[in-house]
Simulated assay, not measured.
Amino acid sequence: MKRIDVITRPEKLVGLKEIFATHNCPGMTALSVMGCGRQHGYLPEMNFMGDDINLLPKILVFAVVEDEEVEGLLADISTAIGTGTNGDGKVFVTDVLDAMRIRTNERGSDAIK
């Protein structure tokens, strides 16, 4: 199992939900976050008062998926939400050693289905 963390623009949430659904991912968590990367938090259209903005609104969406879903998921994320401009975001993939559904005590892959 792998955990996929996607940090991107808030308006990309609907597209991400659709992508995860098509890749056998029944659940996900989404958080509103603030951040900056290469763009250093600067967008000309948000520079109202001449001050540099160092953090921009982003979303963090994470989900746990089966290993075989990862490559297709990454390809679809890049195609669907990538614009080729600064601020598109990042995706992090990490190993998940185990999972447990609290209600039933199911473990591993059974816990994420």
Rank of each mutant, 00 (worst) to 15 (best):
M1G: 01
M1Q: 03
K2F: 10
K2R: 13
D5M: 10
D5T: 14
D5E: 14
V6A: 03
V6Y: 00
R9F: 07
R9S: 12
P10M: 07
L13G: 06
L13H: 08
V14A: 15
V14K: 14
G15S: 15
K17L: 14
E18I: 09
E18V: 05
I19G: 01
F20S: 00
F20V: 02
A21D: 13
T22W: 06
N24S: 15
P26K: 14
S32M: 11
V33R: 00
C36Q: 07
C36K: 11
R38E: 10
R38N: 13
Q39S: 15
H40N: 10
H40I: 08
P44Y: 09
P44R: 08
G50S: 05
G50T: 09
I53V: 15
N54T: 14
L56P: 00
L56E: 02
L60H: 12
L60Y: 08
A63R: 01
V64M: 02
D67Q: 13
E68N: 15
G72N: 11
G72S: 05
L73Y: 03
L73H: 01
L74P: 03
L74W: 05
A80G: 09
A80Q: 12
I81R: 01
I81A: 05
G82C: 11
T83M: 08
T85W: 10
N86K: 13
G87Y: 01
G89I: 03
K90L: 05
F92C: 03
V93Q: 04
V93C: 08
V93L: 09
V93E: 08
T94S: 15
V96H: 03
M100P: 05
R101T: 09
T104Q: 11
N105V: 09
E106I: 05
E106N: 07
S109T: 13
S109W: 11
A111W: 09
A111H: 04
I112R: 02
I112V: 08
